[in-house]
């Protein structure tokens, strides 16, 4: 079971500022998701290799060849506060 403290912890990790009602709603939703996982957990998996991909493919690699980049103005097109070709962000405060 996920309690309020867990939700607050996860919210901090993901930099989400949740209101009181949102915290409570998330707690309920996360618990219902975990309940689904309990259903899955009931499936016998003895001797089954863990799967991280639905496709059975390995070794997809590319050659070390440089390719064209984005023009800088395009790269910065969505930046809210570009400055001299750089992304400007609020000052970082160490926790």
């Amino acid at each position: 079971m996920i309690d309020r403290k867990d939700v607050e912890h996860v919210a901090r990790l993901t930099r989400l500022a949740l209101t009181e009602p949102e915290l409570e709603r998330m707690r309920e939703q996360l618990n219902s998701i975990l309940a689904h996982l309990d259903t899955l957990r009931a499936v016998p998996t003895e001797g089954v290799e863990p799967t991280s991909h639905a496709v059975d493919v390995v070794n997809v690699m590319r050659e070390d060849e440089p390719a064209p980049c984005l023009p800088r103005d395009v790269a910065l097109a969505n930046a809210p506060d570009p400055s001299d070709g750089l992304f400007r962000v609020p000052r970082i405060i160490e926790e």
Binding site: D64, E65, A67, R72, A75, G85, L86, F87
Partner: peptide
Amino acid sequence: RSKMFCGCPTTFGAPPNTQT
């Protein structure tokens, strides 16, 4: 010559945000 997961070049000292 190129990055780990894309083809952008890795030249040191290029103008900011021109190798993305």
